[in-house]
Computed example of a mutant assay.
Amino acid sequence: MSIVVLWCIVLPFFLCVPLLLGIYTYRDAKSRGMNAILWALAAALAPTFLGFLIYLLVRGSYSNLVCPQCGTAVRESYVVCPQCGAKLRASCANCGSPVEPGWQVCPQCAQPLAREAMDFTPPVKPKDKGLGKILLIVILIPVLFLAVLFLSFAAVGQSGASHTAYYSELEFVMLANQKGLGGLVLDIQDQAKEDGSKIYVLTSTLETADGLTQWNYLIYLPHAAAESISTEQRNGLLGSHFRVQYEDGENQRGEFVMMTIYAEKEPDLVIECRGVVKPCVEVPVDVDLSQFTNIEDSWVIPAEGATEVMIQ
């Protein structure tokens, strides 16, 4: 699995967080009598959760009380619930003005307050369970992403070794002819000449006794300067990543790179020319391409001036 696939998995989570913030803000703002649509857009679209943080600071000035009997949203100034008529505040029986507990006389009509005036059930604040869950998601998603990203590039013991050999075009033609496989060389050269913008790669696979798969890649780099070719391998949680870098020159012939990689999953192959990733066309063949590498002695013979970097 490549880093591109990793982003395809993680990116939807980052897109869901602003959506969750917008939904929560809309519902909470609506229950408080605030401009729900405006605050929802601010929470969802403002970068680095700035809009949502501002909303959390501002919302404290707006009440989110509900009727204790029917759950209808009410305000602190309401004497009774407009939905079910439940008494929410103490009021004067004579003029209906709201009064405070402990008062003996109504300040509006100067009438003595009866005990019945103090018989009421105040509105309540519902528990805000959604905020805790959203904050947990906002914190955990970046942490999980960084953890997966770190582990994906950390070396693991399950990945196998690799072997790489470099050949000039003339050397490889002679070697292929000796093995009776000269037709393979002609095929890959002809395809490269037809479309010089792509890199053509012959591939073959073999299953090994230890449960790993032997992935073989024969890469033709047209007009490549031998001294500029380098390879780098990284074995990580998401599989093997193999990068080939080179620079093209004025030489009419190219270079061949033969790689054999042992891994559980198919390696992610990237080929760059002067820092630009070249599109690859993989052509599966029925021939065991690993015969072009010195696998038994586990060493490689690079072309003169070629360099190799292996990270395992």
Rank of each mutant, 00 (worst) to 15 (best):
I3D: 08
L6P: 00
C8F: 03
I9D: 04
V10G: 04
F13A: 14
L15M: 15
C16D: 05
V17P: 00
D28C: 07
G33S: 06
I37Y: 11
W39K: 13
L53G: 12
I54H: 08
L57V: 06
V58Y: 07
R59P: 01
Y62K: 13
S63C: 04
L65P: 00
A73Q: 14
R75G: 11
G85H: 14
K87H: 06
R89P: 00
C95P: 05
M118G: 08
V124P: 00
P126T: 03
K127M: 11
L135W: 09
L136F: 10
P142H: 06
L144P: 01
F145P: 01
L146Y: 14
V148Y: 11
S152G: 07
F153Q: 11
A154Q: 13
A155W: 05
Y167K: 11
L170S: 11
L181D: 01
G182Q: 04
V185C: 08
Q189P: 01
K193Y: 03
K193P: 00
K198C: 09
I199T: 15
Y200R: 15
Y200C: 10
V201H: 08
T205W: 07
L206Y: 04
T208H: 13
D210W: 14
G211T: 08
T213L: 14
I219N: 11
H223W: 06
A224Q: 06
Q233P: 00
F242Q: 11
Q245R: 14
R253L: 11
K265D: 10
P267V: 02
D268N: 14
R274Y: 00
K278H: 03
V285T: 14
V287R: 15
G305K: 10
Q312H: 06
Q312Y: 06
